[in-house]
Design a protein around this nucleic acid. Structure first.
Lengths: 112, 112
DNA sequence: TGTGCGATGTAGACATTGTCTACATCGAAG
DNA sequence: CTTCGATGTAGACAATGTCTACATCGCACA
């Protein structure tokens, strides 16, 4: 069994953006929000690959849009974070917060 | 030049642990602290590889211990984070803090 | 006085994650 | 028809994460 399942740094950003977008989490919106709030600009291929891999790990899931995909092309996918994904984010944040504690002198105050 | 240099999730932990250990950052101590404060248990080889790669990127540097390496074996290396490394940590923390904001409802309070 | 032990460090291999470019699909506007 | 925009997929390759095996050097002590 493959244990040590820590989401990579980019995977974390994607998970967080998915949570932020709630019902609006389709690929292009994720791409935009990733750029806007994390300054991360990547290609669509990069995002899809990451999303697919996280699905395989049970961190995200999706439904193809049911309502009229009026605007042609492939039916778009609506992503969401699974409980497993949320748990991974929680654990990761907890660890980081603990590691940061006491280092404000050198790292500065994030609320600046 | 390849720019977009984001430290990976494990690299970040290592950098943070190095900062926490200050003058005591030699490999075995890092390994112990990584386990103790981040629950991360890895082999020595893993740590060295990571450290070497980060050195190549200018995030860490080291000096071989000058004072009597009384306890035999190879002279041990004393690691430290460079300003570049500190800056990377700062940027990373800033992004995460921003992405987490507003998500306490789903992620819970880290100060629990 | 040689043998094992502990604290170090190095090398090579391989799995996972990060990232891009090229290509394919399908309505609507020309 | 042809083009365009919004989508998604596939394949390749670079960067990161991780291990095991091996090498070095004092010291304890049989």
């Amino acid at each position: 069994m493959p244990q040590s399942n820590y989401p990579g740094e980019f995977e974390q950003m994607v998970l967080l953006v998915l949570l932020r977008l709630e019902d609006d989490a389709y690929a292009l919106a994720v791409l935009k929000e990733l750029d806007r709030s994390a300054g991360r600009r990547v290609s669509r291929g990069t995002l899809y690959k990451t999303l697919d891999r996280m699905e395989a790990k049970g961190m995200v899931e999706w439904t193809t849009e049911a309502s009229t995909p009026e605007r042609g092309g492939h039916p778009r996918r609506l992503f969401s974070v699974t409980p497993t994904g949320v748990e991974a984010l929680r654990a990761s944040r907890e660890t980081l917060v603990r590691l940061w504690s006491g280092l404000d002198v050198v790292l500065g105050d994030p609320a600046e």
